[in-house]
Simulated scan of single mutants.
Amino acid sequence: MKTSSNSPLSAATLHILLALASEDLHGYGIIQEIARQSQGSYRLGPGTLYDNLKKLMDQKLVMDVPRSALPKDEERRFYRMTPSGREVLAAEVERMRDVIATAQSRLKERRPRNA
């Protein structure tokens, strides 16, 4: 998903990439991290999570952690953000900064009413 700087990520994609930004996680760990990062205001169900993970993997933004990198007794599938995923997330953060700056500027402006 090579999105242009003007194409916002879906809420689910944004939250999944944010959850994977600092560590590899299994599916339930991603759900927990999203709830933690959003202070419970955004919840992702398993169906939505795995549908989005498949799309992100198809787009090479997320990958499976190689089994050799996991403890021998770990049977869950872990996910890792790829360098391309990190680039897409960084572009989205920059896009959001621009939106916020514009919104803050507009909120400070006082326009006279047309009578």
Rank of each mutant, 00 (worst) to 15 (best):
G29P: 01
S10E: 11
M63T: 11
R77C: 05
Q39F: 14
K108Q: 10
S10H: 04
N114C: 10
V65H: 12
L56A: 02
V65E: 15
L53Q: 03
T13I: 00
S10G: 10
S22M: 06
R106T: 06
T48R: 04
P8A: 00
L17G: 08
L61F: 11
V62T: 05
L14W: 13
D51A: 01
G40W: 11
G47W: 12
L25D: 10
M81P: 01
L18H: 09
G40F: 14
L20Y: 02
M63K: 12
D73H: 05
P66C: 07
M1N: 03
G47L: 12
D98T: 07
R43G: 00
A19Y: 08
K72A: 15
H26Y: 15
S7F: 13
E92N: 13
S41D: 04
R43K: 10
F78V: 08
L25W: 05
I31W: 10
A115H: 07
H15C: 06
Q37S: 13
D24R: 11
K108R: 09
E92A: 11
E109F: 03
P112T: 02
H15F: 10
R36W: 12
E87A: 02
D73K: 03
L61V: 07
K55M: 08
G27Q: 14
L56S: 09
L17H: 10
I30A: 01
R106S: 07
D51R: 05
A69V: 13
S22P: 00
A103P: 00
P112Y: 13
D64L: 11
R80Q: 15
E94N: 09
D98F: 15
Y42G: 00
S4N: 07
Q32W: 11
R67Q: 14
R76H: 14
M1F: 01
D58A: 02
S68R: 14
T82M: 06
P71N: 14
L49A: 02
M81F: 00
A115M: 09
Q104T: 11
S38M: 06
Q32E: 08
R113P: 04
V99N: 14
G45M: 03
A11N: 04
V62K: 04
V65T: 12
R110T: 10
M57V: 06
Y28M: 07
R110W: 07
H26K: 09
P66K: 07
S105T: 07
M96N: 11
S4Q: 12
P112Q: 10
P66R: 07
